[in-house]
């Protein structure tokens, strides 16, 4: 059990009459790169807020890094870095001053001596070391986002909880943040990242959980979710689709479209085609994308009774 970084049991939250989160059993192992997905209003943010002790569960339990939240929050949360619903900082102070004040708000043994260095390292990591004394008010959206990530990194956390970390970033920023997260993961940091950008999650994460209307509807390894669909997409060099239909018979699943064929992956498809005298340019095993998985398992906005947070 101790190897779970995040574990919730029957986690449920009602806001008045609105059921925001229902019976969620989240399991994030230490070292995971966990992608937390779901449409707006599906209960992602409320769940994240309960993990951090901001929202108190109606029922159910939360364990983070081996401690109860909110009970043991004072012990476990210093080891958690978080960005929830966008960055926030004091506008008339510089990013550096913001990070120092935030770090000073909860003293840790020896933390004061290393504060300056840790703040510089965090700013360096997100590419903000050069902005100097400019107040946060004058930052661009992307710079604020980087500052939010830096603020989560100052404590060198064991668990990073990031809500939409690449929101508002330019392509260079996205690449920088993705590389940074992979690097932190390689050093042993557990990542819990919520995002709308499924391709990004697919690239970054090893495991995903999908929320829909307050329920955790999918929780699995990315590799398992992206299992082959049992179909091959074959591209021929020529347009002899008639021959192909004869060779494949019932294995041809859809009427040929140009030179490409959708074929059931049974037997030696390519071999049969070649023996039938056809030149095969390419044969690709069809896999579900994360987008397919998420769309199949979730309700579009407006269909369900979602709440904003």
């Amino acid at each position: 059990m101790s190897d779970l970084a995040v574990e919730t049991t029957g986690l449920t939250k009602r806001f008045g009459r609105v059921q925001a989160v229902t019976d969620v059993d989240l399991r994030v192992a230490e070292g995971d790169r966990y992608g937390f997905l779901g449409p707006n209003g599906s209960g992602k943010t409320t769940t994240v807020r309960m993990l951090l002790g901001l929202v108190l569960p109606t029922s159910g339990r939360v364990r983070v890094l081996g401690g109860r939240v909110p009970g043991d929050a004072a012990r476990v949360l210093p080891q958690v870095g978080a960005m929830v619903e966008g960055p926030a900082a004091i506008g008339h102070l510089s990013g550096r001053a913001n990070l120092r004040l935030l770090d000073a708000a909860v003293p840790t043994p020896g933390g004061r001596r290393t504060r300056r260095a840790r703040v510089e390292a965090a700013l360096e990591a997100v590419g903000l070391a050069q902005v100097g004394r400019r107040p946060v008010r004058a930052y661009s959206l992307g710079m604020r986002q980087r500052l939010g990530i830096a603020s989560a990194l100052v404590r060198r956390p064991r668990l990073l909880v990031l809500d939409e970390p690449t929101n508002g970033l330019d392509p260079q920023g996205i690449a920088l943040v993705t590389d940074l997260l992979l690097q932190l993961s390689a050093q042993g940091t557990t990542l819990l990242v919520s995002s709308h950008l499924l391709s990004e999650v697919e690239h970054l994460c090893t495991r995903v959980g999908v929320m829909d209307r307050g329920h955790l509807v999918v929780q699995d390894d990315v590799d398992a979710l992206r299992a082959p669909t049992g179909r091959l997409v074959v591209t021929l060099s020529g347009a002899e689709t008639g021959t192909a239909e004869r060779v494949l018979g019932r294995r041809l699943l859809e009427p040929p479209c140009g030179r490409s064929l959708v074929v059931a992956d049974e037997g030696d498809v390519v071999g049969d085609l070649v023996r039938g005298g056809l030149a095969v340019r390419e044969a690709v095993v069809e896999r579900r994308t994360l987008t397919d998985v998420v769309l199949a398992r979730t309700t579009a906005v407006g269909e369900g009774a979602g709440v904003a947070r």
Binding site: G53, A82, P87, G91, A105
Partner: peptide, 14 residues
Amino acid sequence: QAGTLRYLLVRPVG
């Protein structure tokens, strides 16, 4: 209103 309350609380300041 500024959004900084949540970041203080998750530090956690208590």
